[in-house]
């Protein structure tokens, strides 16, 4: 045992770390968004993910503006994409679907919106409100994106349906459009993604559905 032990080589960084290092984000919050996007794409198999950023109010760094509508100091990244299965169904909507014999597989995929956050990051009601105030704009952006990419790929084989089912589905979409205004089937919602970065981070991301206002819980 005369020869000295070779200096231990550090293992290679993970693909996501390399990706984040390569891209070089302006703000740590935006780097979090890269991690969450990676998780959505490769673990939860979401498709056509796009991003958006609510710009921070960098000017008044120390004194928070008194206007409660103003977004917070730091930028907030947003993500959006299509999950392979429905993530959330309002209890009343579920009841309607049951009564009319509509299964989740019959429906068009629904775009979901995600707010990436990480443990220990500053967060407040102001952040939450800023996110919901921005959502309609981001939604519009996402719709434009969908139109530009492909207009037809989003309809799952509409011609293969029997007419009775198609009629029911048309009624369902009508109703859905109406409830957007009446808020019977819930208000605006998004997913709050929380990435674990403490203890080196094991790559876990927890997802919670956040509704604007009081939306009755699901009875699962």
């Amino acid at each position: 045992m005369a020869n000295t032990q070779e200096a231990t080589k550090r293992p290679n960084a993970s693909a996501i770390t390399e990706h984040i290092a390569e891209k070089g984000y302006d703000s740590p919050h935006l780097a979090t968004s890269a991690q969450v996007q990676h998780n959505l794409e490769h673990q939860h198999l979401w498709t056509s993910i796009i991003g958006d950023v609510i710009p921070g109010q960098a000017g008044n760094s120390n004194t928070l503006s008194k206007d409660p509508r103003q977004p917070p100091r730091e930028p907030i990244p947003l993500l959006s994409g299509y999950p392979p299965h429905r993530v959330y169904t309002h209890p009343d909507e579920q009841l309607y679907m049951l009564e009319n014999g509509i299964r989740e597989d019959d429906l068009k995929p629904e775009r979901m919106f995600v707010v990436p956050t990480t443990q220990g990051q500053p967060w407040s009601l102001r952040h939450m409100a800023a996110v919901f105030d921005r959502l309609p704009e981001f939604k519009q952006k996402a719709e434009e994106h969908d139109r530009s990419v492909d207009a037809t790929s989003m309809q799952p084989g509409a011609e293969s349906l029997d007419p009775e089912k198609a009629e029911k589905l048309a009624q369902y979409y009508d109703k859905k459009e109406k409830t957007r205004v009446t808020k019977e089937w819930g208000t605006q919602r998004c997913l709050l993604a929380m990435a674990d970065k403490g203890m080196g981070g094991d790559g876990t991301v927890a997802y919670y559905v956040v509704h604007e206002g009081d939306v009755k819980p699901r009875q699962n």
């Binding site: 409660p68 939450m128 919670y208």
Partner: peptide, 29 residues
């Protein structure tokens, strides 16, 4: 919470998890 009071992200997980466990929503405001 107050409007600019710092909310620990972990508290949201704790509340959300507790609420879901008893078939309730976790409401902050």
């Amino acid at each position: 919470y107050d409007w600019d009071q710092n909310i620990d992200i972990m508290d949201l997980v704790v509340g959300g998890r507790l609420g879901t466990g008893v078939k309730k929503g976790f409401l902050i405001g």
